[in-house]
Design a binder for these strands. Structure first.
Length: 897
RNA sequence: GCCGGGAUGGCGGAACUGGUAGACGCACUGGACUCAAAAUCCAGCGUUGGCAACAACGUGCCGGUUCGAUUCCGGCUCCCGGCACCA
């Protein structure tokens, strides 16, 4: 008999129960181990999307699981509430960003609650609250005192659409990360954080993060981009128009291959280099080339394939060791923004230099013995030895084992003796670099140096809806920090931006102030901070009491570091790197005692859905929502086409992509909750794919999940009328088998849950239900006891994923009041013992049959029985048994020949 | 080019340290119930041949180790993500 599954009622009741019992309010206690589970907080854009649902369900499953495992769990939630969309919405709707933001927060909070997340709402925060951003300002001032924050005027990335500065990290392929507009270069004064001062630590401490995905660590290491080498100068007496020596007569370069310094045959400088600028003054041809280079750099897409081009400046510099005159060229492959904007060129041992020298007929001088080996293997990038590379190389050498021919070549070159190098002849890589660096140092013309790809973090934004930078500009005193007792500098919340620049500039009540130092009238800084500042420490604030007297308190060190952080891979570099940096700054200021904020990181995959489209007559693309399309199957169930419902004409059905409005393939979580309930939404999300992989949306998959929960409800309803009896001492037959199935499935599910493979946990729950339904239907003696035992385990296993239905049934069936407080279900070994075991029998590794044998049987006996099976004898007609392999309780392989 | 990850039925995906490949679900096919449909329940479902029992083949490709390989080793191909003229 079918019961309906009243999910709405169930979910409301369960949520009311949690609310009334403050079930998720975390206390700082010492008798349990702590577990801080954090999902990246959302930007309050209006309403939740499926990515949020997936992210927060993963976090919730982990939180509830650890609750039941006896951990003291903290799972907070908040709002990354500053940012541009609020301003854009304000311009469109004539509403102050604050109001828009708070309205969105209210709606989204309601949505999160309707999904039943075990969140400690007492710790909710929004980064746009003065009580929060006060501490951005406070820490900013401390960083200013320490020199970690500083002001400089620099060429910056300017987003012409958002009218603001972008950090390097926010420029993707020459375009703004949010607007997609082509980024311009502008000179603007602003504040910077000296993140490069922490580069070494940020790199080294990646090794302290075994719980992070390898790819995220690699991405960060690449981004930090350490390279070790020698910085040295060629000397010259080239003067500018005023007769002053350019750069004090030194052309500085950086190289990782100082061992090849004796092979320098020319130098190449960037188009923006002062020497290039000077040489171009009387050389229109060179000027034209330089202009072309500068222009070209905008077209990022062509960079990779761009031909190496250059032009002679006619200038010469002096080699610091040989004293030779070396020609200076302008090269389009030299970057002004990396190193010194100039390079030494050794065509014999660097691929790019080689190509350049060949093209312009410049001399090539071999100075390393094994040079010809390189030429034999073209395409070998010999110009950089990354640290990781050298490490691997050394390992390969010591193991005397080369995994690829490439390592062989690197090894040969690195171990080649210097030749044609005067006093350095016979030295190998490291010795040569040491000797050369020492000689350069003695001459005052160079030394070993480490170069970083990472730049300092520019945090000034010419925007309204952000945290004000606490600085006052005084004509007499200059830039004066706002005193601590005047913090926070509150952002006026009633401004409505009109789209032309920063409205704070026009707000006299904000701008006009008095200088805290001399008391004269002064102007307040109107730039606000990059919103990545806000998100760089919110996790520490959650963990702390919300004191107005301190940024964080002692509680922080109890909860931190975050035990499990969950969020999208798109934050692999920006947010995670900034947060790590910020933590180290807070540590150095004595505020916290941890080095790294996030012990374990889970990067969840994106949520994809089908894209149905059709080319229109006009050459455009028309998109169809999934409900506007009907799929066409063949008799095997294979999808062979799709047609639009409105006209019956075919549409393309093979596309798959992230949910978006423009592609018309979005699914609204709210509609899903209303139609199927939160438990179904959560269950499907966990079941459809492992958490790190992309998840392909499927309406029929959602229905399948709903069907499963309805069956759970039905069995629960049925069992609610059946008395709970004790299990007999010994079960037999089908009942014993079903119980074994329940327990062994549970055992595997426990393992899967601990390694965060939630999809197989969900399928384990399904398997357990299948077994229990069988128990119920067969109704052998004692089935009631087996069903109740199994069902109570099923409910607890399922409860982190589908908390409402399980809480409701837990109570209805009289198992307990609060399933969250129930002990985690463990599989019983006694339920899994077997007297008889099914052995698979193979002949020469091929499956030929199976036999059921007593578990206590001797090996020799097993072998004899197996060989006598007819399906084995068949294969012995023209052959004899050579060997028999018995894997206990599993498999017998008879080798014949 | 470098770094990281991946490739398993019609689809999403299982298979812990080498041991029954395809768990679980979806789709599809047939049946039961129904006046009928939906829902539900039962059965089937890798490919090829065969009425069937069964046999052969099968985890991107080529080769190796092993009694036995989706799993380990060597060499490729393709796909996804990140970085990229980094000196």
């Amino acid at each position: 008999m079918q019961q309906q599954y009243p999910y709405q009622e169930i979910e409301q009741q369960s949520q009311a129960f949690w609310e009334a019992n403050n079930s998720f309010v975390a206390q700082q206690t010492s008798n349990k181990p702590k577990y801080y589970c954090l999902s990246m907080f959302p930007y309050p854009s209006g309403k939740l999307h499926m990515g949020h649902v997936r992210n927060y369900t993963i976090g919730d499953v982990l939180s509830r699981y650890h609750h039941m495992k006896g951990f003291n769990v903290l799972q907070p939630m908040g709002w990354d509430a500053f940012g541009l969309p609020a301003e854009n919405a304000a311009i469109q709707n004539n509403v102050p960003p604050a109001q828009w933001t708070f309205d969105n927060i209210a709606y989204m909070r309601k949505q999160l609650k309707s999904l039943g997340f075990a969140i400690d709402w007492s710790r909710e925060l929004a980064t746009c609250q003065p009580e929060y951003y006060k501490w951005n300002q406070w820490l900013f001032l401390r960083m200013l005192e320490k020199g970690i924050a500083y002001k400089k005027t620099q060429v910056v990335n300017w987003d012409p659409v958002d009218q603001t500065v972008l950090a390097n990290e926010q420029v993707i392929d020459g375009r703004g990360w949010r607007t997609g507009a082509l980024v311009e270069k502008r000179e603007i004064p602003g504040y910077y954080f000296n993140i490069t001062g922490y580069a070494q630590q940020l790199l080294d401490d990646l090794d302290k993060l075994p719980g992070w995905p390898e790819r995220v660590k690699t991405m960060q290491a690449n981004w930090i981009g350490k390279s070790t080498g020698v910085r040295f100068a060629f000397t010259h007496d080239i003067k500018d128009n005023n007769g002053a020596l350019i750069d004090d007569g030194k052309l500085w370069v950086f190289t990782t291959r100082a061992d090849t310094i004796m092979g320098v045959t020319f130098c190449a400088v960037a188009a923006e280099h002062p020497l290039a600028t000077l040489a171009a003054q009387n050389n229109p041809e060179l000027q034209a080339f330089i202009d072309k280079c500068k222009q070209g750099s905008v077209m990022e897409a062509d960079m990779a394939t761009m031909e190496k081009e250059g032009m002679d400046t006619g200038l010469f510099v002096t080699h610091p060791l040989t004293g030779e005159q070396v020609p200076v060229w302008v090269g389009n492959y030299v970057l002004m923004t990396y190193g010194e904007g100039a390079v030494m060129a050794v065509p014999a041992h660097d691929e790019r230099d080689f190509g350049f020298a060949k093209k312009y007929n410049l001399p090539i001088k071999q100075v390393i013995e094994a040079g010809e080996l390189k030429e034999a293997k073209s395409g070998i990038k010999s110009n950089n030895f990354s640290e990781k590379g050298i490490e691997q190389l050394n390992k390969a050498i010591s193991d005397n084992q080369f995994t690829t021919s490439r390592w062989q070549v690197w090894y040969e070159e690195k171990n080649g003796n210097c030749i044609n190098s005067g006093k350095y002849n016979g030295l190998k890589y490291e010795a040569a670099v040491d000797a050369i660096a020492a000689d350069l140092k003695a001459k005052g013309l160079g030394d070993k140096q480490v170069n970083w790809r990472l730049r300092d973090w520019g945090v000034s934004r010419q925007r309204y809806w952000g945290c004000p930078i606490p600085i006052i500009h005084c004509d007499s005193c200059g830039d004066v920090p706002v005193p601590d007792d005047q913090l926070p500098v509150k952002l006026p919340e009633d401004c409505v931006p009109d789209g032309s620049g920063n409205p704070l500039n026009k707000l006299e009540s904000f701008v006009n102030c008095t200088c805290p130092r001399c008391g004269k009238s002064a102007k307040r800084e109107t730039d606000t901070m990059d919103t990545f500042v806000d998100s760089s420490w919110y996790y520490a604030r959650y963990a702390s009491g919300f004191s107005n007297e301190a940024m964080v308190d002692a509680q922080t060190n109890y909860w931190m570091p975050v035990d499990q952080y969950i969020g999208g891979i798109e934050h692999a570099i920006l947010h995670l790197l900034y947060s790590r940096f910020w933590s180290k700054v807070m540590r150095d200021l004595g505020l916290v005692n941890y080095d790294e904020p996030f012990a374990n990181l889970l990067t969840q995959g994106m949520v994809l859905n089908h894209i149905f489209s059709r080319r229109t007559d006009k050459g455009g693309i028309e998109y169809f929502a999934p409900e506007e399309v009907e799929l066409i199957h063949d008799e095997h169930g294979k999808t062979i086409g799709a047609k639009a419902l409105k006209d019956g004409l075919p549409v393309d059905f093979q596309g798959m992509g992230t949910m978006s409005k423009s592609k018309r393939n979005g699914v609204d979580p709210q509609a899903l909750i209303e139609q199927y309930g939160a438990d179904t939404a959560r269950f499907f999300m966990m079941f459809a794919a492992p958490p790190e992989q992309t998840l392909e949306w499927s309406d029929s998959g959602v229905e399948g999940s709903h069907r499963f929960l309805r069956r759970v409800w039905n069995l629960g309803y049925l069992l609610s009328g059946i008395e709970k009896a004790d299990l007999p001492n010994k079960l037999t037959g089908n009942l014993a088998a079903s119980r074994r199935e329940v327990h062994s499935t549970l055992k595997q599910a426990g393992i899967d849950l601990s390694r965060q493979q939630f999809n197989t946990v969900a399928s384990a729950a399904m398997k357990m239900l299948n077994a229990l339904e069988k128990v119920q239907k067969e109704a052998e003696p004692h089935w009631q006891a087996v069903a109740h035992e199994g069902f109570s385990k099923l409910l607890r296993l399922l409860s982190p994923i589908a908390p409402h239905i399980t809480q409701s049934l837990w109570k209805t069936l009289g198992y307990g009041e609060d399933i969250l407080k129930a002990p985690w279900p463990e599989a019983l070994a006694s339920a899994m013992v077997q007297d008889e075991v099914e052995y698979v029998v193979q002949v020469n590794g091929k499956l030929r049959g199976s036999i059921t044998l007593s578990k206590s049987m001797e090996k020799s006996q097993i072998e004899a029985i197996a060989v006598n099976q007819p399906f084995v004898q068949k294969h012995l007609e023209n052959a004899s048994v050579r060997k028999i392999i018995v894997v206990p309780n599993k498999l017998i392989n008879i080798v014949v020949g």
